[in-house]
Amino acid sequence: MISGLAQRIGRLTLFFLREVGTHVLLLARAATAGGYLLRRRHLLIEQMHKIGVRSLPLVTIVSLFTGAVASWQAAYQFRGLISFDYLGAAVSAAILIELSPVLTGLVVAGRVGASIAAELGTMRVTEQIDALETLAIDPVHYLAAPRILAGFIMMPALVIYSNLVAHAGGYLVAYSMLDVSTAAFFGSARRYFLVHNVVAGLLKAFFFGGGTALIGCSIGFRTAGGAEGVGASTIRAFVYSSAFILVMDYILATLLF
């Protein structure tokens, strides 16, 4: 009983370490693609477009409602305790530090992480990755590096955008439903604004974006077993990158605040 449990814990630990190891190894190999990506910029630009621009509609909706809910819930907790004059500050800090990076991270993990895994997984099972190898083109440079770099770059950009939209959402609810004036909302947000919060949020986004793309690539490359395998990889990429984001969020929170 006890030894069975110990065995399971041991196996899980080994599995975890091996997983992390393959991802880190892929990252190290992709990092050697710097010169290559300079020459083949369009590969990077294409991925930045896919990961960044094409995520805008989803990020817009999520951010707008996140801001709105943040306002409404903060008001619920403030009622009878704290003046609504502080609503703007509370909502703004929550958006910048936590809500925008994590929620944008999670929806992008669902959209981008899963689609990278599905795309590369399909290429693996249909021998397209082997075909690249036979053409003496390194799949890590050609496929993984642009996606991972685009993830690192575009996620902070998306989070900046998300910050703006979420503030708008929070303000709209505060103004139209909670009778908080424009001046009160943005005044308090500005009074308690800290550059540190913004930077911390963007730093989170940087790791979330790179990590999500890395996990998608790594899992895509290791896909086996036809269409069924591709489906399994897609789900796994989403689960792993979501877990990565939440754990990483906690680690960064303890380091940054």
């Binding site: 083949r40 795309e119 290429m123 249909t126 021998e127 397209q128 082997d130 075909a131 690249l132 190898e133 036979t134 053409l135 003496a136 083109i137 050609y142």
Partner: peptide
């Protein structure tokens, strides 16, 4: 591998690229 060419049993064409891009990719890369 630069000295090799290989035709796969199932062709293994890159389905996100056009025919011309498929054939020309190695020239573009190398």
């Amino acid at each position: 591998r630069r000295r090799f060419g290989m035709l796969f049993q199932g062709a293994a064409l890159f389905d996100s690229l056009t025919v011309a891009e498929n054939i020309g990719l190695a020239l573009r890369e190398h």
